[in-house]
Amino acid sequence: MLDWIPDFQNPDRLWTLVLLPVLIIAYLILLRLKGRVALRYTNTGVLGRIVGSQRRWTRHLFVAMSLASLIALGLAYANPLGVEKQPRERATVVLVVDTSLSMSATDVSPNRLAAAQTAAVAFMNDLPSSFNVAVVGLDGDPSIAIPPTTDRGATQRAIEALQLSDGTAIGDSITQALKAVDQAPVGDDEEEAPAMIVMLSDGTNTEGASATEATAEARDREIPIFTIAYGTENGYVDVDGQRENVAPDPEALEQIATATGGKSVAADDLTSLKDAYRQIGSVLGYEEVSKPITATYASIALGFAVVAALGAVFMAARWPR
């Protein structure tokens, strides 16, 4: 369905709109008959003084307003539905934080990992208190640092306890994040809450399984992955006396986000990292729900009806000259 056409709670009631072409045809027939009657009166000056002068376009305009009012009423009768953003009541958010050695780069003060931990804690605290939050450490052997919980204190301690390690296994970290989602408690209705993964990383997959298969599983389970490519192009680390560039790879992370219906953002310092988390938080904290907007269409119909009524008065009145 086209974006500008709303959904309807009772689409079967749209049959009332078939009356519109019938009324238009009837109006055209009446105009034609009126034209024939007018030909009987050859003295148009006398006729004009009797019936008064009326502009043809105003008559058509007021008729159009009447028809527009009927259209709006017909649509209102079918109970149109609009989309409204409402705060989510429940959700599971899995924070995947890169702890590979490249996160020791100091291009972000004091270093990438410390800045990432600070921003992750702030992001978590901005989430609704009913959200379950889990943490996965992303290195060569990813693991669940803490399963989904609403205990913000315990989650903060888990984030702050993350330590640097070798390797970057992005595919395996997604697999661990999906396992964390499975550990989230169900609600009173025994249904799983919607879930999403937020991944902060500065590198590409260096070991472990390919990210393609894990990304496909997340997509099939309708779990979006939001990615943040963190760090600057000039970032570096010293390994065994060798200086290595550790620029982020936003293209690889964007592919993961796009494939799962998530969003990809970039951050090159602590401020922009907090902004990136804020953008993601605004997406996670709300969901789109259908809401009846019958009153809106009824108001539009009333507006058209008022204009049409004024037009009828204008055409029927004998204004003094």
Rank of each mutant, 00 (worst) to 15 (best):
T99R: 14
P185S: 10
V239E: 12
P224M: 10
P142R: 06
D269C: 04
S102Y: 04
Q156I: 00
V237Q: 09
I228D: 12
V22R: 02
V46R: 13
G48C: 11
A161F: 05
M196G: 13
I146W: 01
E84W: 04
T175P: 01
R221G: 06
D12A: 11
G153Q: 13
Q54M: 09
D141Q: 14
R157L: 15
L95W: 09
A76N: 08
D269T: 01
N245L: 13
A64L: 15
S109N: 09
R318M: 03
K34A: 14
D240P: 01
S69I: 02
A72K: 00
L31Y: 04
V313R: 13
N111S: 07
V63M: 11
D172A: 15
G311L: 09
L138Q: 09
L162R: 09
A114S: 13
A119Y: 05
N111V: 03
R278F: 08
I25A: 14
A120F: 06
A120D: 01
A193Y: 06
N125E: 15
D98W: 04
P142D: 12
P250W: 06
Q54A: 14
G303C: 06
G208L: 08
A64M: 13
E191F: 09
S299A: 13
Q9S: 11
K179C: 00
A122M: 11
A257R: 03
G311E: 08
A247N: 07
A180M: 11
M65V: 07
P6S: 10
T227S: 11
D107K: 04
T204L: 15
A266P: 00
I225M: 05
A259Y: 01
K34H: 09
L138Y: 05
R36D: 04
A145Q: 12
S53F: 10
T106V: 13
A177G: 02
Q255F: 06
D12L: 09
